[in-house]
């Protein structure tokens, strides 16, 4: 029988490790994916994801059922990942500086090459490049981008997870997309746009 997250949390609170193991199995892919996309390095991401689950386990008593377990878990995971990213991403400062430049620059105007890049998204190399570039963004932007587009979280949920006002969440999302687009295009060979 499939138990809900909340039922598993209740069993875990009563001390069942099997129930908690099921929660880990259920959410490990999402948490690890987020960690990987924010931190960039697989080994560090795995460690951060483990830390997130252990912190969640320690804090199970504090889980209030006014939000979904996944939202609560993602909040813990995000805190761990953002802290880890600050420690491990040696180029974080330059990324931040680059983001500031991105924000102040004018919208990108692509040269007219006669053909639309509609088929870009169909190209595997373009998609892979974009996926790799997510981790090169500022961690806070990677986080918002993933929560919105990959985890399908609403603005309200992201606001709760990252403890940010909804307006800031929207602004982060705007800047994250713009920065990602700019970097993706910078990485493309000119002929790829033709």
């Amino acid at each position: 029988m499939d138990l809900s997250d909340e039922e598993l949390v209740e069993l875990s609170q009563q001390g069942s490790r099997s129930a908690f193991a099921t929660l880990v199995e259920r959410h490990k892919t999402a948490v690890f994916s987020m960690a990987c996309r924010i931190i960039g390095k697989r080994e560090d991401a795995e460690e951060a994801a483990q830390d997130a689950f252990i912190r969640a386990y320690r804090a199970l008593d504090q889980f209030r059922r006014d939000s979904k377990f996944s939202t609560w878990l993602y909040r813990i995971a995000m805190n761990v990942c953002l802290t880890k990213a600050k420690q491990t991403r040696f180029d974080a400062t330059s990324i931040e500086a680059s983001m500031e430049e991105d924000e102040e620059s004018v919208p990108l105007q692509l040269p007219d090459r006669g053909e639309s890049p509609d088929r870009l998204v169909e190209r595997n190399e373009f998609r892979e490049r974009v996926h790799a570039l997510i981790a090169s963004l500022s961690p806070k932007y990677s986080a918002v981008l993933m929560l919105y587009h990959i985890q399908d979280c609403s603005y309200e949920e992201i606001s709760e997870i990252l403890n940010l006002p909804i307006g800031t969440v929207k602004a982060h999302l705007f800047r994250a997309r713009e920065a990602l687009k700019r970097r993706a295009l910078e990485a493309l060979e000119p002929q790829e746009l033709q």
Binding site: T29, A30, F32, S33, C36, R37, P107, L108, Q109, L110, D112, S116, P117, D118, L120, V121, F126, R127, V130, H131, I134, L145, M146, H149, I150, R177, E178, L180, K181, A184, L185
Partner: peptide
Amino acid sequence: TDYTVLRAVVQAVADAPPL
């Protein structure tokens, strides 16, 4: 063109496979 590329990027993000 800009809008098309932006859409392509967002679609690529949404298509990111779970790790």
